[in-house]
Design a protein around this nucleic acid. Structure first.
Lengths: 174, 174
DNA sequence: TATTGTTATACTCTATAACTATA
DNA sequence: TATAGTTATAGAGTATAACAATA
């Protein structure tokens, strides 16, 4: 190996940033997939159910943008979740083109159980870090993701994480 | 929205961990894709070239395991990189089944330029974090990824990041 | 005319299986 | 028999294009 290559390793450890993030995200995905195996569409279904459960009923396109899912796959996932009785489509009264996705009572119960499971596997994922390292990582990651998301070039004017959903509500009501 | 849902938000911020990591990794991928557009196979080709450039020549299967690429796609990527004259396949003298992937002089020059570009987009990616937050994130992320990788259930006995590659060398020489 | 949701189609990426050459 | 590398095929996942309903 040449010296000219070794010197590169000095800078931001970011030569491996893609590798680092990939390893963590992949493991998260694998573990969550096991944890939410019952749910249609696995982790993706979970993320949708979670978003729907924790926010005012978003539109399908709002969900798609927020979770970076192509809008053409939303129908399939929503169909599956609706068939399980976990969410329901409700036509927006102010814009009849829009379907708002509401969580059902059964959805709430299911989500609660799944979140407990996911919480467990996430604890396991972080077991190698002490609580300081853990909270430090989570804090900076959340901050960074928030900043990045608010700057998404392909996203409409949305300022922060939840604003996507909030703005949907506003846009629909004007 | 019900109260029972709001309370969940208290625990580990990890309900959104998948979203958070996804946003960061996606943006990294997008930006690096632009930065290394010339290279065959984009970010993946870059990761391979980078790994080959910074380590003793790994085997194809070693690379595949390390970067979590299916072994059946390696030939195509290596072919493309070899055709560009950036790497070359060398049959291992001790085990003639094994091809070690060496970086060429041209590969070294190309990698050096690409790493500068990638470094730039990574700087941009982190521009919202001050240097403390940045190094804190990178440090914990690297630590976490290292721990996770060394525990990969589907990976053979490999203790740390580079050990995968080192072990290949050892295994081949016994 | 523009947008939400939908469907059908095409494409890309990934995984499965089978082959060769070495061990 | 087992493994590294390769190839061809099948499958999953994703993007593209066109449509109906509503604005």
């Amino acid at each position: 190996m040449t010296e000219s290559l070794r010197r590169q390793e000095a800078g931001i450890p970011g030569s491996d940033l893609g590798w680092t993030l990939g390893v963590i995200l992949r493991r998260w995905h694998e573990q969550v997939e096991l944890a939410v195996a019952d749910l249609p569409n696995g982790p993706r279904g979970y993320q949708i159910l979670s978003t729907v459960g924790h926010n005012d009923p978003p539109t399908q396109s709002g969900l798609a943008k927020h979770l970076n899912i192509d809008k053409t796959v939303m129908p399939y996932i929503i169909d599956a979740l609706e068939k399980e009785g976990l969410v329901r489509r409700v036509t927006d009264t102010r814009d009849r083109r829009v379907r708002r996705i509401e969580i059902t009572a059964k959805g709430v119960r299911t989500l609660s159980k799944l979140e407990a499971k996911v919480h467990e596997v996430e604890e396991l994922l972080f077991q190698g870090l002490d609580s300081n390292q853990r909270s430090s990582f989570l804090e900076q990651a959340a901050r960074l993701a928030g900043l990045i998301h608010s700057n998404e070039p392909n996203l409409d004017p949305c300022i922060a994480v939840m604003d996507v959903l909030v703005e949907d509500s506003l846009a629909a009501s004007e």
